[in-house]
Design a protein around this nucleic acid. Structure first.
Length: 747
DNA sequence: GGGGGCTATGGGGGG
DNA sequence: CATAGCCCCC
């Protein structure tokens, strides 16, 4: 057990304290992954069977790394540990247990596009105004309901939710939710949230004692990034670990300061509740940072201290002062790209860094383009993470659509995608009719065609025949052979072959790469020692539905600069990190400007970003940038001001320039001293900006009440001049696009 | 009835 | 800047 000697005292305790509930609060770079993996290795060495250990992570990458490191200590049996994302582990279990909750074993996983399209269809069927009922907004409500364990029945009875929807002029959401839920069920499909919700149902309803079965299997449960779990995930964890005579062998690892997923339902409350739910919990705080030098660590501490709620801790390092933080000011997004690229060249020459030591982190994917262009110009190898994953490309999704319909004929979203792809003369009128009958009869579109509810003649008959042929093939052959047949006989390969443009050839390559991937999946069967591994087509589809771009490894080139969003960067580290686009309305995002809680989350995101750097940290901003199709001027991010200038490399002169431009200080709402909201956020109900007019008395979350003096600017860019009752700068110009105002009195 | 080109609209982070 | 809806032509 020599590996234990490499741990510091707290880490050692966290690893060897195996029984009963354990909570590890782990600051950035504090050896969290080491603790988790060594703890699992230690359990195995203590005689716990690997297959009795469940380790839940948020990304496939984290799970993969964990498995590799466990195997490095305990050998190949480490492979049998149940390590994976919540979604992938639950999908695997549901694949086996689906009939117990009335789903087919070959259930489909609906991705975001599928969900959105279904919600859109339902909104149309209900003849609701799609402008008012924006599918994305509706879906967000449904997702948040599911994450909080609110089923359609509960939603309809929940006065608070109903009231909220009424206020937002979307009173029918409960109805849409109910229909959406039924239609997913009808299609034998689960969306991402259902993988959690249906897992909960499975355990809760406990048919054939399935709950006890999994309680018995998972003797030790570990949860990584616990601060990012939502109510539902925690509820499932409790079903698995809290029962009569339970040893409560649950270990959670997390950091409240790195909670950045509240937008998808994560709640910091879970950490606080954990101590109430498990009063006998042993708590270990990992505060020593082994990643970054002191200027970076101190800056990070300083930034996070501006947040309201947090578990007290102070991160420290023994790695020395290190380099100061570089601040890069650019006049435009294009110049920002150029300056970052040239700084990278300078770093590489002066500091002997490789490409792989460097990352550029941005708040939104849309920012990647300028950096891409300038890196290419400078001949620097780079890789963009995020954006469209391989499996989201059209040509790939088309083939997958056929495979989905083949394994699950009720999958209406797949049906709609491929019925006329490639074009076979079955247009939207026909498809519309089939869909209409399907809704009326409460059956799938496939059933409408095959049961005679709609006459399947001619083109439709050949389509049915083709799919039947695929289904027959699937019954007798492996996934690869089916996919090959689909690609050829559906006409997809033929169509791609005809397009000899550069993009067209690329699409053909993608389609072939998909088939290669399926072949690999099938052949892995032999390599895997576990006989239980599911190599079916359904299992393949389920696997890839949960993969992200981060999971597709390419071996050919490994020395590249990494470009990704700040969210994706969580858990990763580089010698040199560039956090870019540090401007108000971008980072922090304009979407978060309305509420202190959301601003705190942006700050945590910034905290996560800067703590990715081991030795060199550079922060850049542009005073103007092309955004939403026009030039916009934004102030430097408030987060820059939260770092003491002793940690900055730039001269004081430059810094003065940076912060003393008069307008920066004048109309900056979020500065600490005047940030106490003058309105109770709970009582604040923003009014739609199109209703705002001159003379109205309005309420602003930070500035309190005021009167609109005038509104000017073009449609999407309206700016209101408002006289606020309190405060020194009583007249402010507020962009209606960003600001949330509540009408108190029509003028 | 189906296909293709045009205009309008919306745009955050991810399993 | 991408996608959806719309209109016009086949």
């Amino acid at each position: 057990m020599t590996y234990l000697s490499s741990l510091n005292e707290v880490q050692h305790q966290a690893v060897t304290h195996t029984d009963g509930p354990v909570m590890v609060i782990a600051g950035p770079g504090s050896g969290k992954t080491r603790v988790l993996t060594y703890r699992i290795a230690y359990l195995i060495e203590q005689g716990v069977a690997p297959q009795q250990i469940l380790a839940l992570t948020f990304t496939n990458k984290a799970a993969r790394e964990m498995k590799e490191r466990i195997q490095a200590v305990v050998g190949s049996k480490g492979e049998r540990v149940w390590a994976g994302t919540f979604h992938s582990i639950f999908a695997r279990i549901l694949r086996v247990e689906a009939p117990k909750i009335d789903f087919p074993p070959a259930f489909t996983i609906y991705d975001r596009d599928d969900s959105k399209s279904l919600v859109g269809d339902i909104i149309k069927e209900m003849r609701l105004d799609p402008k008012q009922y924006n599918p994305n907004a509706v879906l967000a409500r449904i997702s948040s309901a599911k994450s909080n364990l609110i089923t359609p029945e509960l939603y309809a009875k929940d006065h608070e939710l109903i009231h909220y929807d009424r206020m937002n002029k979307r009173p029918q959401i409960y109805d849409i939710y109910e229909r959406y839920y039924k239609r997913c069920k009808q299609a034998g499909a689960m969306d991402f949230d259902d993988l959690l919700l249906q897992m909960y149902r499975l355990l809760q309803e406990n048919k054939d004692n399935v709950r006890e079965k999994y309680q018995r299997i998972f003797r030790y449960v570990l949860v990584d990034e616990f601060q990012d779990t939502n109510y539902l995930q925690y509820a499932i964890i409790k079903l698995l670990t809290v029962y009569h005579n339970s040893p409560f062998n649950i270990c959670i690892v997390g950091d409240d300061a790195q909670s950045i997923y509240s937008f998808r339902g994560a709640t910091i409350e879970n950490i606080l509740k954990f101590e109430q739910d498990f009063p006998e919990v042993s708590v270990f705080k990992l505060e020593q940072n082994y990643r970054s030098t002191d200027h970076i660590v101190k800056a990070a501490n300083m930034v996070i201290s501006n947040n309201n709620k947090q578990i007290q801790k102070e991160i420290w390092t023994e790695l020395g002062d290190g380099h100061k933080i570089k601040v890069i000011k650019a006049v435009s997004d294009v110049e920002e790209g150029r300056l970052v690229a040239s700084t990278i060249i300078e770093y590489k020459n002066r500091l002997h860094l490789e490409n792989r030591d460097i990352a550029i982190l941005y708040r939104t994917n849309a920012q990647s383009r300028v950096f891409e262009e300038h890196l290419r110009k400078q001949n620097l190898a780079y890789k963009i993470f995020g954006g469209l994953s391989f499996y989201q490309r059209k040509e790939v999704k088309d083939i997958l659509g056929y495979l989905r319909l083949t394994v699950n004929e009720r999958d209406d979203e797949a049906f709609k995608r491929i019925i006329n792809t490639p074009k076979r003369g079955i247009g939207k009128t026909t498809t519309g009719k089939i869909a209409e009958i399907a809704v009326e009869e409460g059956v799938s579109m496939w059933a409408v065609l095959t049961s005679g509810l709609y006459p399947a003649k001619g083109k439709l008959a050949s389509f049915v025949q083709m799919i039947e042929k695929f289904k027959a093939k699937a019954a007798s052959s492996d996934a690869y052979e089916v996919a090959m047949m689909v690609a050829q006989e559906s006409g997809i390969f033929e169509q791609l072959r005809q397009d000899q443009s550069i993009e067209g050839i690329g699409r053909m390559e993608n389609a072939s790469a998909l088939l290669d991937g399926i072949k690999e999946f099938v052949e892995n069967d032999i390599a895997d020692e576990g006989a239980t591994t599911d190599r079916s087509l359904a299992a393949y589809l389920s696997d890839i539905a949960l993969l992200t771009d981060l999971d597709t490894t390419d071996e050919e080139e490994s020395d590249y600069i990494s470009l990704m969003t700040t969210h994706t960067a969580k858990g990763l580290e580089w010698k040199a990190v560039f956090v870019v686009g540090l401007e108000e309305n971008l980072f922090p995002s304009y979407m978060s400007m309305g509420s202190p809680d959301q601003l705190d989350e942006e700050r945590r995101l910034f905290y996560v970003s800067i703590t990715r750097a081991k030795m060199f940290l550079a922060l850049s901003y542009a005073t103007s940038r092309y955004q939403f199709g026009q030039f916009r001027y934004n102030d430097p991010s408030r987060f820059l001001e939260e770092i003491d200038e002793i940690h900055f490399e730039s001269t004081v002169e430059r810094k003065k320039q940076l912060f003393k431009e008069p307008r920066l200080l004048a109309d900056r709402p979020g500065r600490k001293k005047d940030f106490e909201p003058r309105v109770n956020p709970a009582d604040f109900k923003p009014s739609p900006s199109e209703q705002l007019a001159e003379g109205m008395q309005v309420l602003h979350l930070q500035f309190g009440s005021g009167r609109i003096l005038s509104i000017d600017g073009a449609r999407d860019n309206k700016v209101a001049t408002i006289h606020f009752d309190q405060g020194d700068d009583s007249e402010r110009r507020i962009m209606l696009r960003f600001a949330k105002l509540q009408i108190v009195e029509q003028g």
